[in-house]
Write a protein that binds this DNA or RNA. Sequence first.
DNA 1: TTCACGCTGTGAAATCTTTAACAGCTAGGG
DNA 2: CCCTAGCTGTTAAAGATTTCACAGCGTGAA
Lengths: 208, 208
Amino acid sequence: MISEKTISRLSLYHYLLTTLKEQEIEFVFSRQLANMANSTPAQVRRDLMVTGYEGNPKRGYTINELIVAIEEFMGLKEGVDMVLVGVGSLGRALLSYFYPQKPRYNIVAAFDKGSNSDRVVSGCRVYDIAELAPVLAGQRVTMGIVAVPAGAAQQVTTMLCEAGIHGILNFAPIRVKVPRNVYLENVDLAVTIEKIAWFANRAAGKKE
Amino acid sequence: MISEKTISRLSLYHYLLTTLKEQEIEFVFSRQLANMANSTPAQVRRDLMVTGYEGNPKRGYTINELIVAIEEFMGLKEGVDMVLVGVGSLGRALLSYFYPQKPRYNIVAAFDKGSNSDRVVSGCRVYDIAELAPVLAGQRVTMGIVAVPAGAAQQVTTMLCEAGIHGILNFAPIRVKVPRNVYLENVDLAVTIEKIAWFANRAAGKKE
DNA sequence: TTCACGCTGTGAAATCTTTAACAGCTAGGG
DNA sequence: CCCTAGCTGTTAAAGATTTCACAGCGTGAA
Ligand SMILES: NC(=O)c1ccc[n+]([C@@H]2O[C@H](COP(=O)([O-])OP(=O)(O)OC[C@H]3O[C@@H](n4cnc5c(N)ncnc54)[C@H](O)[C@@H]3O)[C@@H](O)[C@H]2O)c1
Ligand SMILES: NC(=O)c1ccc[n+]([C@@H]2O[C@H](COP(=O)([O-])OP(=O)(O)OC[C@H]3O[C@@H](n4cnc5c(N)ncnc54)[C@H](O)[C@@H]3O)[C@@H](O)[C@H]2O)c1
C-alpha cells in the first residue's frame, strides 16, 4: 500500500526536479533531492521505488526521465481540474494564484451565492451555488475546494459529493463528513498555528 | 514523547469543545468527539491522556474542565502573536481572516517591500522588510508567516530566524532551511492538490 | 444496598513509517 | 582490462502511531 506521505513527497520531488531541469541540470543523486526536500537519501530512494524508475549508481537519476516516471505514476500528465466554492477573500486569493500562472491546476468554475455570483474573478466565471449540479454535469472535474464559512461548509461539501466530485480540499475550520468514495483533506489554519506555537516554544530551548 | 499529530488533534478537540460549550452542552463522550473529529474513541482517549485530565466513566468529560486542561497543556491561554511577511493576495486574505474576528491569533506586524509597505491593511501596520529586526526587537513574537514568492522565501525566513522567531509557517512552494531551534511547517498547496487528485482517482472506485 | 451497564484509562498488540545496512552495479582511472 | 569509489535498490531492523481489549469505576435502577 502506498501512503499519503509518499504521495506528498513524490509531488514535492516532481516540483524540485522541474526547478533543476530549468537550471539545465541533467542528473541528480538521492542525497541532493533529500537535501532540497529536508529529508534523507534513504527516504528518497524508498519513495522513488514505487514509480518503478531506476537510477544509475554512478550518475544518479536522469532528471528528465524521473520527471516523466513520476508524472506517469501520479497521473499528472493531464493537469488537475477543480471547482471552487466560496469567492471571499480566501477564494479570490486562490483564483489569482492559479490564474494564469499555474496552467496545470485549473479552476474551471467558481461558485458563490447572491450578488457575489454572476461575475468573472481572475479569469474565472463565478456562478450561483444553485447552478452547481448543472454546471458540473457538463465537466469531468474530480476535485472541489471549499472556501465558505464554517456554517455553510457541510452543505456545499454534500452538494459537491452529490455532483460527482471525488476529492475535497476544505479550508473551513470544521470536519465535514463525506461518503467513503470521496477523499477529504482539511487545511485548518487555526490548528496549524497552534501546533507551530507549541513546537516553537519547545524549539526555543534547543541550541543553535 | 508527544507527537505532532497528537498536538494537532488536541487543538482540534479544543475548537470542537468550544463549539459544544456555545451550545450549552456540559458533557461529552470520547465517541462523540471522535465523531466530530473524524477519528476513533480510542484515539481521542489516548490523546487526552497527555493533558492529565480524567473523564468520568458515566458522564464522559466535563467540557469546561477539559477545555481548561487542554489550554493549560498547550499554553493557549495567552493567544499567539505572529508577524506576516508578504502582503500580496495571500497575505491580505490572512490579515482579513485574523482581524478582527480571531482575537486569539494576533498578527502584530506585517512586512512587505517598496511601495507595498508603509500602509495599514485590515488594521495591521505594514512595514518595510528592512525594518524587520528593529520592529521585532521590541516585541515578544514567537511565530512568523512567510507569504512571499518562492524566490524571496529563504531570505525572509533567515531574517525571521535571526530576529529571534522560533516558529515558521511557510506558504511558498520551496523547502526553506531553518536552524535546529526553529520549528518549520510548510503549507504547500500544489502538493496538497496533487495528493488529493491522486486519492480522488482511487476513491472514485470505492462503493457508497 | 446491590447490581448491571457502559464508559474511561491504559498496557500490549498490530500496523504503519523511517532508518540502517549492504549486495550489486557502473563509470572512470590506471 | 581490471580495480575502486560511491552510488542505487531492497531487505531487515527500529521506531512511531494506532487500535485492541479489558480491568475498574461511577451512576441509575431495582
Ligand atoms: N481568509 C483566509 O485567509 C482564511 C484562511 C484559512 C481558512 N479560512 C477559512 O476559509 C473560509 C472562507 O474564508 P474567507 O476569509 O474567504 O471568508 P469570506 O467571508 O471572505 O468568504 C466566504 C464566501 O463564501 C460565500 N458563501 C457563504 N455561504 C455560501 C454558500 N452556501 N454557498 C456558496 N457560497 C457561500 C460568501 O458569499 C463569501 O463570498 C472560512 O471557513 C475560513 O474560516 C480563511
Ligand atoms: N495566493 C494564494 O492563494 C496562494 C496559495 C498558496 C500558496 N501561495 C504562495 O504564497 C506566496 C505568496 O503568494 P501571493 O499570491 O500572495 O503572491 P503575491 O505576488 O500576490 O504577493 C507576494 C508579496 O510578497 C512581497 N515580497 C516580495 N519579495 C519580498 C521580500 N523580499 N520581502 C518582503 N516582501 C516581499 C511582494 O511585494 C508581494 O506583495 C507565494 O510563494 C505563493 O506561491 C499563494
